[in-house]
Amino acid sequence: MSAPAWGIVAVFETPAEILRAAEAVRDAGYRRFDVHTPFPVHHMDRAMGLRDTRLPWVILGMAVLGCATAVGLQGWAMGKGYPFILSGKPLFSLPAFVPIIFELTVLFAAFGAVFGMLAFNRLPALYHPLFKNRPFSRVARDGFFIVIESSDEKFKAEDVRKLFESLGAKEIEDVHD
């Protein structure tokens, strides 16, 4: 393989090892790196130096939109679109609108949570260079992986390999796109 590698991946065996590795990679100043684990490892966010996700704000925005939609839909349909006095209630009878306001608020917020999560994570992404890496097929089972991409400013293949070796990685491999 003469083409430059997309990145270098190292395999670790336990959550404690991968946590230490992530801290070391963060402290070495790499930014374009990622950790892949079968389940979310506690404190990994801090070990990688991740910024808190802005997803909750998206969800809040969607909740407000859902609430406004419900008020608007019901207020317009009952007050303007099809104005009928039913059970002696005023045309804009807010208390009777509350259940649907609640339901649409939750529905929109849930859409925000699910599709927002997928968008922030850029999923679905059916192709990724790591999928071509043989040991990586263990990622959902019991493998703990850390990968540094060659597009990182500080990336030098020898340095990365040395760092991974010093951390006690079991396997270190180039990943090609």
Binding site: A22, D34, V35, H36, T37, P38, F39, P40, V41, M44, D45, M48, L50, T53, L55, P56, I59, A109, A113, V114, G116, M117, L118, F120, N121, L123, P124, A125, L126, Y127, H128, L130, F131, F136, V139, A140, F145
Partner: peptide, 19 residues
């Protein structure tokens, strides 16, 4: 959907799941 256990994904995923 191409889930690959990325810690960056897990971070958003866990927040989404909690909410």
């Amino acid at each position: 959907l191409g889930w690959r256990g990325s810690a960056r994904h897990w971070h958003v995923y866990e927040r989404a799941y909690l909410i």
